[in-house]
Deep mutational scan, measured.
Amino acid sequence: DETGKFLVLALYDYQEKSPREVTAKKGDILTLLNSTNKDWWKVEVNGRQGFVPAAYVKFL
């Protein structure tokens, strides 16, 4: 159920650099879980949760 969740689009490829991050490919649609940090947003992609740089994604 996606009610109340926001989707964001990956603008660039991002390769995770730590276990707390997730890899995303340009064009991926990610479920935004938390955007309270202006630099790192928590997302879910391909069943995995983790952080990506906020500058790499935008709201749909």
Rank of each mutant, 00 (worst) to 15 (best):
D1N: 14
D1G: 14
E2H: 13
E2P: 13
T3S: 12
K5M: 12
K5N: 10
K5P: 13
F6D: 09
F6L: 14
F6K: 12
L7G: 03
L7S: 07
L7V: 08
L7N: 05
V8P: 00
V8T: 02
V8R: 00
L9W: 06
A10D: 01
A10W: 06
A10I: 14
A10N: 01
A10S: 04
Y12F: 12
Y12E: 09
D13V: 06
D13Y: 08
D13C: 11
Y14E: 01
Y14C: 10
Y14D: 02
Q15E: 14
E16C: 15
K17R: 14
K17W: 06
S18Q: 05
S18M: 06
P19F: 10
R20K: 12
R20C: 15
R20M: 13
R20F: 14
E21C: 12
T23R: 03
T23H: 04
A24V: 15
A24P: 02
A24Y: 11
A24R: 02
K25F: 09
K26N: 04
G27E: 04
G27W: 05
I29D: 01
I29H: 04
L30P: 00
L30Y: 08
L30S: 01
T31S: 07
T31I: 15
T31P: 04
L32K: 00
L33D: 00
N34G: 07
N34C: 13
N34Y: 07
S35F: 12
S35C: 15
S35G: 11
T36M: 10
T36G: 09
T36Q: 12
K38T: 10
K38M: 09
K38H: 10
D39S: 10
D39T: 13
W40R: 01
W41S: 00
W41T: 02
K42I: 12
K42R: 10
K42Q: 12
V43Y: 02
E44H: 03
E44L: 06
E44I: 06
V45W: 05
V45E: 01
V45D: 02
V45F: 11
N46S: 08
N46C: 10
N46Y: 06
N46P: 01
G47I: 06
R48I: 08
Q49F: 07
Q49D: 05
G50V: 04
G50H: 02
G50P: 00
G50T: 03
F51Y: 15
F51W: 13
F51C: 12
F51R: 00
V52M: 11
V52Q: 01
V52T: 01
P53S: 05
A54G: 02
A54Y: 04
A55C: 14
A55Q: 11
A55I: 11
A55T: 12
Y56S: 11
V57C: 10
K58E: 13
K58F: 09
F59I: 15
F59K: 10
F59E: 09
L60S: 05
